[in-house]
């Protein structure tokens, strides 16, 4: 009897609340709905940060035409007013066509002037997105892997001990393998960590064929279309190699770059300063011999223009 009365009261409350819920505010029906495991977009604006790769890949059927340029030393012996702070010299130039085969896989070919032991370099590259950070942190970070192969087309040196003396064709080749771990923290900050492996088939005496390096980079968005970017690599060169080169008066430095990135629709411009003279990982990681502190840093820019090809066809499916 008592329970019945209690039940009636309960039901009455229920009925009232449900009526009001159903009739006045339909939004409550979807209160629990979420956007799901949506991938985070735009961790970086471009597939590159300054010298190295970001976790981003091109989307399916996108063509990216890239031009990168590094000028001569801004200061020091070769810089200063007489070379317009390095603008009269170019230490490295790279022109590339890169293409998205799927939303997660991109490939590319490029030609770089090259700066270091080897010059006149052709490059083939591929990058694959393995993991995507999600907005609900179901996946807290993104992971991409990048690899490339380069071939130098320069004339073989007569000096048998030089890195640019080629006995066989494979002596002209170098490789890079890299994992890029990235996370976007809110809308304004993105960071990456990139364990990298560089292999050069032929190197100078006491240099290293295999070298590991750790890269770190970041972006701070200053506005929707302008960002500050910075990048740093630590190559792990062993002590005996360092000591040998030191005895020859050669010192290696860690590549450090900083710049501004501007996005205007399909273009991304990055204007930067780096101490490394080379653009490709194969060279700037093991062969950077110029130091910020001695004025051996330079202007550089990366221009990326993205085209969407076959867009209509994909979409109609």
């Amino acid at each position: 009897m008592k329970t019945m009365r209690l039940l009636c009261v309960l039901l009455m409350c229920c009925s009232l609340s449900m009526t009001s819920r159903a009739q006045d505010d339909l939004s409550n029906m979807f209160k629990d709905s979420t956007t799901g495991h949506q991938p985070v977009t735009g961790t970086f604006k471009s597939t590159r940060i300054i010298m190295g790769h970001s976790n981003e890949t091109l989307k399916k059927h996108e063509l990216d035409f890239r031009v990168a340029h590094r000028f001569g030393d801004a200061g020091g012996e070769f810089g200063g007013g007489k070379t317009a702070f390095g603008l009269d010299n170019s230490s490295d130039i790279r022109i590339a066509f890169e293409y998205g085969i799927s939303d997660n896989l991109m490939v590319g070919i490029s030609r770089a002037k090259g700066s270091g032991d080897l010059t006149q370099i052709f490059e083939g590259l591929a990058k694959y997105r393995i993991l995507k950070q999600t907005t609900d942190d179901h996946m807290p970070f993104s992971l991409s892997v990048f690899g490339n192969v380069t071939v130098s087309s320069m004339t073989s040196s007569d000096d048998l001990t030089a890195a640019s003396h080629f006995d066989e064709f494979t002596d002209r080749m170098t490789y890079v393998g890299q994992a890029i771990i990235a996370r976007k923290f809110g809308n304004w900050l993105s960071l990456t960590l990139s364990p990298t492996y560089v292999h050069r088939n032929r190197v100078g005496y006491m240099d290293m064929n295999n070298m590991f390096a750790l890269g770190g980079s970041g972006r701070i968005k200053l506005s929707k279309r302008l960002a500050f970017i910075a990048e740093y690599y630590v190559p792990f060169r062993d002590q005996t190699s360092k000591d040998y080169y030191k005895s020859l008066g050669v010192k290696f430095f860690n590549p450090l770059g900083a710049g501004l990135e501007i996005e205007t629709g399909g273009h991304v411009f990055s204007v930067n300063f780096t101490n490394s003279t080379a653009i490709l990982e194969n060279q700037f990681i093991p062969e950077t011999r110029s130091s910020w502190l001695q004025g051996q840093f330079r202007w550089g820019f990366n221009i990326s223009r993205r085209f969407s090809l076959f867009g209509k066809k994909d979409w109609k499916k």
């Binding site: 979807f30 709905s33 956007t35 949506q38 989307k59 399916k60 996108e62 939303d103 969407s308 867009g311």
Partner: peptide, 16 residues
């Protein structure tokens, strides 16, 4: 009546 849509689910021809 009520409508709600997750804005990032809109699909475009051009991914960029």
């Amino acid at each position: 009546i009520y409508f709600k849509v997750p804005v990032n689910t809109f699909q475009f021809k051009k991914k960029l």
